[in-house]
Design a protein around this nucleic acid. Structure first.
Lengths: 337, 337
DNA sequence: GCGCTCTACTAGCGCGCTCTAGCACCGACG
DNA sequence: CGTCGGTGCTAGAGCGCGCTAGTAGAGCGC
């Protein structure tokens, strides 16, 4: 980075070539780390490039090359678990020589728009973190591009899904709570969130198994803090609280905890709260959240590998990679009063 | 989105043009929303595009046009406050007709690399969330591109800075704690984190103002949860705890809270904890964190506006936009024992 | 008939790069 | 001596689009 104050224009490969006294093609070759240039020339070219402040233009690169070596990642920036996943994806993509482009949903920007942005960047494959789009849309997307979904299952679609065995995690949580002596265990549903349907089903099954079908109850919700707050309001408006709540995910659990605390309800003395995800925040929060651990590092790693494999064998039928979850008991749960 | 199963190739503008029986130029014009096409043709072109699954290629667009209408945002995906800022930036960028490209630092990817990625995408301006790079680097960057920094001040550099009045926020926090009766108030420093130097200075000044210079103490740290955990270890190894801790930011405060809790220290009874940022999580966490509120919506909005203005008037000298912070007293603070 | 304007459209260059084909030169080998 | 393979380099087409300069045709006034 230095003088280089050409009026407006940013330096291009030709500038570097001219300055270094070689052809543009050779500079290209050197910047691509391709063999065929002497060590001496290589160094000189890099030196000149640094001097005039040359930076390769991704757009031009993308346009000219068939492979962009880029993966598109769709996430929800608010979701702390997604942050864990992103870190894992970067690490693995680096290893495989792939770049990553991020696109997030925010309240003013829906999934389709965020995905369009990724495709506009010519990503070779898409990795979607818990997508909420319709199955039809995702199926069609999978037909046109290599797609990997984390957590969200899309039956019979031509895309790979990486997720944890939801049912197993829920069963562990319910078994644990029942073991502690709980009977009134309610579940806050994740709505259309990824894995929610499976979790709800597993919750019902587990309650039935323990002969607690009558005590089971599902409050509708979603995967945000708000739904936890809302569930708390619903519960507080009633005569008696349940002794334990299995939240849709960690964010929902945090919202619930906050609202319960505000209302003076003691956790875990009066109510036990269990989350789902084990995002790193859960571990760190003031009173560590009891939650079902999903291995983000492994999920991200597998997703990237699957995505890259799909770029090489596009027509592969959909695969499902399932990891085992694991209950992490911390401070927000215990025996009922 | 439909059949369109051309072998490998994705449809281009020419495909749309051919199919619709018009020239490529007209299709281009229509997709750019430029005037000069009849309503009838416009609709037919869109119809055909949808049918064959055409998506404009961002790379080609970028390459061909002088303006990319894109802003690059550098963030740390782990930082919940950054999530708040991202949402605000998207909203404002949308309003001004700009796109946003995100690039995050992760443990395996440093700031310079993340910034290079943004510049490779030909962003017209960069918005850096609390950059930690050297002043020299940022100054040079500001000379070459329109740059806006949030929170991190870079004296005399040709870039805009949007931040809150750090000193004022810290003063409010210290005044409040002293008012509650605290005397042993320590500060966990944010190290090279944005605003840290100012906060430390303001902390010292405020303590002096209250005649508590002797009670002041700064523990080195940074802007992650780890530094809070570490500070807790340092404090717990000593004879007596302070009665209040002013953390570097919310993440640091959360780490501290977690570690104190693990050690059986009661908050706020034994120790009061105050954060900084007021990221939405702070509000939601189990016991709401007392913290210094920064208006993320406004910070993001101003940053985007400044960035766009800079793309239009590149040579502007550096400006500083300062917002007022505001102490939010919640559950982690109170009078000392 | 003429020239004029306005609308609706088209031709074709060039953005900065990748990549295939090919060229000049070298030493080695038969 | 001619040929071969390897090394280090270059020429030039073309990726998908934006955009400038243009054209064809309709409508209109004189």
């Amino acid at each position: 980075m230095a003088e280089q104050q050409r009026p407006g224009r940013r330096p291009t490969m030709s500038d570097v070539a001219k300055q270094a006294g070689v052809s543009r093609a050779l500079v290209s070759l050197i910047f691509r780390n391709a063999p065929g240039a002497s060590e001496q020339t290589r160094e000189r070219v890099f030196e000149v490039a640094r001097e005039i402040g040359y930076r390769p233009d991704t757009a031009a690169r993308t346009l000219a090359s068939s492979r962009t070596k880029t993966l598109g990642v769709l996430l929800t920036i608010r979701n702390p678990f997604h942050a864990d996943l992103v870190e894992a994806c970067y690490a693995e993509a680096d290893r495989l020589g792939f770049d990553i482009v991020l696109s997030t949903t925010v309240p003013t920007r829906d999934e389709e728009r965020a995905i369009d942005a990724l495709l506009g960047h010519r990503c070779e494959a898409l990795i979607l973190f818990g997508p909420k789009a319709s199955a039809a849309y995702l199926t069609q997307l999978g037909r046109e591009y290599p797609v990997v979904s984390i957590s969200r299952r899309v039956p019979d679609a031509p895309l790979d899904v990486v997720h944890t065995a939801e049912a197993k995690g829920v069963r562990q949580a319910v078994d644990y709570l029942v073991g502690e002596g709980h009977r009134d265990i309610i579940h806050i549903d994740g709505g259309t969130g990824p894995g929610s349907a499976e979790r709800k089903r597993a919750y019902r099954a587990a309650m039935r198994k323990h002969g607690l079908a009558d005590h089971g109850r599902v409050i509708p919700g979603n995967h945000t803090e708000d739904s936890g707050v809302h569930a708390a309001e619903v519960l507080l408006a009633e005569d008696a609280l349940p002794t334990a709540v299995l939240a849709a995910n960690d964010r929902c659990a945090l919202g619930l905890l906050g609202a319960l605390h505000k209302a003076g309800v003691k956790v875990p003395q009066e109510v036990s709260v269990v989350g789902y995800d084990d995002s790193r925040v859960a571990m760190l929060s003031h009173i560590g959240l009891t939650t079902v651990h999903q291995n983000a590092d492994e999920l991200g790693r597998l997703a990237v590998r699957a995505a890259v494999e799909r770029t090489e064998t596009p027509a592969m039928p959909g695969r499902e990679l399932v990891l085992d979850p694991e209950l992490r008991v911390r401070g927000t749960s215990g025996p009922p009063r």
